[in-house]
Amino acid sequence: MKSKSKAYSFGRSKFAYILIAPGVLLVAVIFIYPLAKGVISSFFYQQPASMEFAGFAGLDFYKQLMNDRIFHLAFKNSIYWTVIIVTFQYLIGLGTALLLNKDFAGRGIYRSLLLIPWVVPNIAAAMTWKWIYAGQYGILNYILKSVHIIEKDIDWLGSEATALPALMVTSIWKGIPFTTLVLLAALQVIDRTLYEAARTDGARAFQMFKYVTLPGIKAISITTILLVTIWTFNQFDLIFVMTKGGPQNSTQVIPVYTYITAFNFFKFNYAAAIGTVGLVIISMVSIAYIRRNNRGGV
């Protein structure tokens, strides 16, 4: 990123190619090739057993998508899923970062504890939350019943109305540490004298937040939101393990539907079409991210 390394060159570009060749080849073979082949296969028919190409399908699979009720649902859910989670994860993360940015005793311990949701592996988190949400003996029902918010046990992951919001809570819980730590890092590099200057000018807390804090974290916020949007849209583990897209596809999203279509129904080419739609959506966000990133220089 620094200009010195940009201007500087060892000049032995042949040696550079030797250095990068293994990595680039590996990524090309295990990433670019399968991805390209995946996209291409959504335009072809294939023999189910040998996977030989068996004819040009054109847009047939995409036309089929237009009439696929589950795909419509997955598409809609994916949008809701991403927008709601990113919003809450950012806002709660910002609130937590603002609190942790204050000077108080025990801040270090709080910061360490904050990491826990992020470091618990997806599958362990999924299982634990499944237990928390359990209709029978689940701790969430117990807590809500004891404060009289609900009267009867709810099977949180088993009913259509609650499954998606319940999964969203788990995903937000898992993501809060990341947004908090990134925003906290951003808050800590804001020039303290700006606050003092604002204070001598008679600015109140809210004004300081609006005119000093927010502009100071704006750039990082946008980058973080783009990254979290991409990760959230692509989220697979939590949903697949906790509900498999059910009940009645109420938690179906594009990544899970892609996977199930391929590996439960063995419609590989149709699945590739679903995955390609997801790829196109996420590419728009990714390109925005890359363009921001490149402004800093490579």
Partner: peptide, 20 residues
């Protein structure tokens, strides 16, 4: 940029061809 993008692509699409 390719290296950055690899972290953003949806894995289910990738895994179909890797599996085959």
């Amino acid at each position: 940029n390719m290296l950055i993008l690899t972290q953003m692509f949806p894995l289910p699409l990738l895994i179909i061809t890797i599996y085959i």
